[in-house]
Every structure is written in C-alpha cells, then in structure tokens.
Design a protein around this nucleic acid. Structure first.
Lengths: 231, 231
DNA sequence: CGGAGGATTGAAGGCTATCAAAGTCCGTGG
DNA sequence: CCACGGACTTTGATAGCCTTCAATCCTCCG
C-alpha cells in the first residue's frame, strides 16, 4: 500500500533515478504518514530524528523568538524534501498548513542510505541548492521591499504555482487560485502584520488588480500591474 | 605554486577527504586567483561560469532591485564555497570585501568532476545544508527583529567569528575585533539604513556595551547585555 | 594642508505596527 | 431552519520606529 511504485511524486522527488532494487530498500526504511492541517511534524531545536518527502499537501517551516514572534522560513510542496539530514538538531519547526501526506524516514537510516547512494545525494544537493536560491531571494524581500512590493511578489508566486490560466493565452491572463495560507500565515511569510496584509489586499481589490471571491481565494485580474509593483 | 598540498584551507574546504590522485586532477582544473577589495568575481543573473573555494579574505553575496536597493544574502569566509554548481545562472553577485584569494574552477569542469566524486558532493551537500540553516535564521532577523536586536545579533556573530577572548575565561569576556564591513555593508546585511546602524552603534557605545576604538574596530565590553538584546 | 569618502548627528515625515472594535464566515446545536 | 459562538478578517485611530533628507564631522592620504 505504501509502495514507491505507485507514489505520485515518484518522478519528481529525490527518489527519482533510483532503480527498483534501491527503491525497495528505501521503501523498507520509510513509511507513509498522514498529518492533518495544523499538526506538527518536526519541532524547532529538537533532535533531528526524521526527514521526509512531501507527497501531498503544503507545510510551513518556521522559526520563532522567545517572545512569540514567528517567521515562516520555507514552504514545502509535494515532492519537496523536509528535515535536516547530516545534522543533530532541526533549526525550524515543520507544521502542516493543509492535510498532508508525507513519506518519513528515521534520519539515521536515511543518512546511512544516502551516503551509500550518490545519485540520491546528488538529487538532494540540487534540491538544496535551489532552495538556497529561493531563500536568498526571499531575504531581499524581507530586508528591502515595502509592504505592497512584498504582497505583489507573494501573489505572483502563488499565481505561478497554483493559477490555472486556462487555454486562452492573452496578454494579461486572469488566474484564480486558492491560498494555502491564512492572513496571519501570509504575514509570517512576508514579515508583516496581519492588519497590513489585509489592508494591502483590500487596496489591490479596490484598484481592480485582484479579486477576492472568498477569504482563501484570489483572482489575478491585472498581472501587469502586479508585476509593476514587485519592486 | 598553486598546489593543493600547501593550501591553507586544505582540511576545511570541500576538497578535504580527497586522496592525492583526486587532488591532482582537481588541481589541474582549478587555478588560484587574487581579487582586490571591491572587485567582483560573479555577477547577478549572469551565466554561472565559475565556482570557487575561498582561501583567504571575505566576500559578500548580494542581490539588488532595479532601483538600486541592495541586500547582502550571504558572506563567504575562508574554506567556504561560492558560485552555483548545477545551474545555468547565478542569482547573486559575489564581491570581495577585503583583498582575497580564491581557487576558481570552470563550472562545467567542476560539475562533471563532482558528479564523479561522491565524497566531494557529500561535502558540498553538508556545506549547503549548513548555509541554508544560517540563511533561514537570518530570515528571522530580517522579517521580525527590531534594529537594536539586529545589531546585537550581528555583533555577537562577528565576535564569535573574529573575537580573540584571550586566555582568561571570565564571565563576560571582552573581545575585540576588526569588522570586514563598512557601515553601509552592515546596513545591507541587516536590512537597515546606514544612519540607523550608526545610531545603534553610538547608543551601544554610550551605554557601555561596546567600545569603538576605530571605525572598523569593535570591542564587546558587556556580552551579557548584547545577548539580552538579541531578541 | 586640503580634499574626498565614509561616518555621525539632527530634524522631520512616512510607513507599518499597535491597539481597539466591528464585521464576516462557518460549524454546531437547539 | 435558524440562532449562537468562536475564529478569522477587516477597518479605524493612533503611535512609534525607522527612513529620508540634510548638514557636519571625522579620518585617511595625496
């Protein structure tokens, strides 16, 4: 039932490229696990005991200060890898934003297996390098962009990931999608407060740049305008 | 003259763990290069043509907006690896902050060599994972910390890296060091303006937390106080 | 000695946070 | 079916932190 052969992220996750025998060994080490929205999978500063592939759903990686301020430092989508291999402690929490399915491994087992399978380590390396690139461009956003620039950047990224433009290639394709984030989570991602996020949303709506069919849905009406706002 | 055998970062850089034969092959691919303070090694959004190990000196990784705002997204010290292997473009510029020596490789050559040497890729993976951890904790700083918290965090990190506490283990060890950054660069690192950085420095000085023997030098007089300010 | 770049200091303003209250949505239970 | 409760979101008023703009001050070198 939890066979790699039928795994929907089989060809995109770091497992891609393993042959059947290798896959069997991996399969024996790992197990599927469901997490419900809001549930934690990994705790900040805990011993790094497990790593995982995301099969389905969206999860957030966060760090917090002692006084409760939170910053989302990463978002994991299907086929993404989470956890900290080759290290003793995890430096961020992982919490499911939606109901999710993951394929978890004991970190020790995974580390040992990875060291014996260069192809797997290479996939993990490429993925980590790409994540570092994304994280660094997010630093630019957090350090230097204004609230409206942050919101515009965020909405375009969401549109590119979730939007269905349909089949009509027009100049300013409208795209509609459901956000996996609450307003508070958007604030934690962008380094803003929930009030600022809300105000920016309503302003974009008033200006006709976006539509807000419901709390969790966004429709990009004027992509060009958004792009001009990214800074 | 540019032999790996005499390299000062030989045992700390990703080359560590290679045997003599492998080292010879690497040696043939790479070459030493000196860069003077202020000189660029890699340009943002350029084709990723080279990667390198830092042998000596300090370099900054930056991204910029079209209108000239700059954010430092990483700092490379001796034994650190710079550049973007396995990718077509570099997403940040690399500029020397001090005179520096690096060991550069054509990216193509390095990529090929790395894929054939799992031990090297493993070292690179560990390094990239550690860098991702550091970058994420910096996101917390940029997204959620106040100016004084950012300055305190920065000074402690500098003290830990450069400070010579001497041999007297006291409760609040004074440590003195030279900054490799100008005030503007500190601002670009912390997501602040140069004026704010300056004001925070003078305030800490007035409060007796630090001393400022010269523009580029800092003395931590009250480490506990700094730690209490990190947020 | 004098210039130039960097750093500091000052005054004022703006952007975002904070505090507070009202509004909306949705599931639950009567 | 509808009222109720609670969480989330929006909106408003105010405050404060940091930026911006501007001027002065170092400090290093030619």
């Amino acid at each position: 039932m939890s066979s790699c052969e039928t795994c929907v992220v089989r060809n995109r996750a770091i497992c891609a490229g393993l042959d059947n025998r290798e896959l069997l060994a991996l399969n024996a080490m790992g197990r599927r696990r469901s997490v419900t929205a809001g549930e934690s999978l990994i705790w900040e500063d805990d011993d790094s005991l497990l790593v995982a592939n995301v099969i389905e759903g969206v999860l957030k990686l966060t760090t917090s200060t002692e006084d409760g301020r939170e910053q989302i430092v990463g978002v994991a989508y299907p086929s993404d890898f989470i956890g900290r291999p080759f290290g003793q402690t995890s430096r961020s929490s992982v919490v499911a934003l939606t109901d999710a399915k993951v394929c978890v491994f004991a970190r020790n087992d995974f580390d040992r297996y990875a060291r014996e399978h260069p192809e797997l380590e290479h996939k993990l390396l490429e993925r980590t390098l790409a994540e570092l690139d994304r994280t660094r461009s997010w630093m630019m956003l957090l350090g230097r962009k204004t609230a409206s620039e942050r919101i515009a950047t965020f909405l375009l990224e969401m549109a590119d990931r979730f939007g269905e433009t349909g089949c009509a290639p027009v100049l300013s394709p409208a795209s509609r999608f459901a956000l996996p984030f609450s307003r508070q989570q958007i604030a934690d991602l962008l380094g803003l407060t929930i009030e600022t996020v809300s105000r920016q949303f309503t302003r974009l709506k008033q200006d006709g740049v976006i539509g807000l069919p419901s709390r969790r849905e966004v429709e990009v009406l004027d992509r060009r305008a958004l792009e001009a706002l990214t800074g």
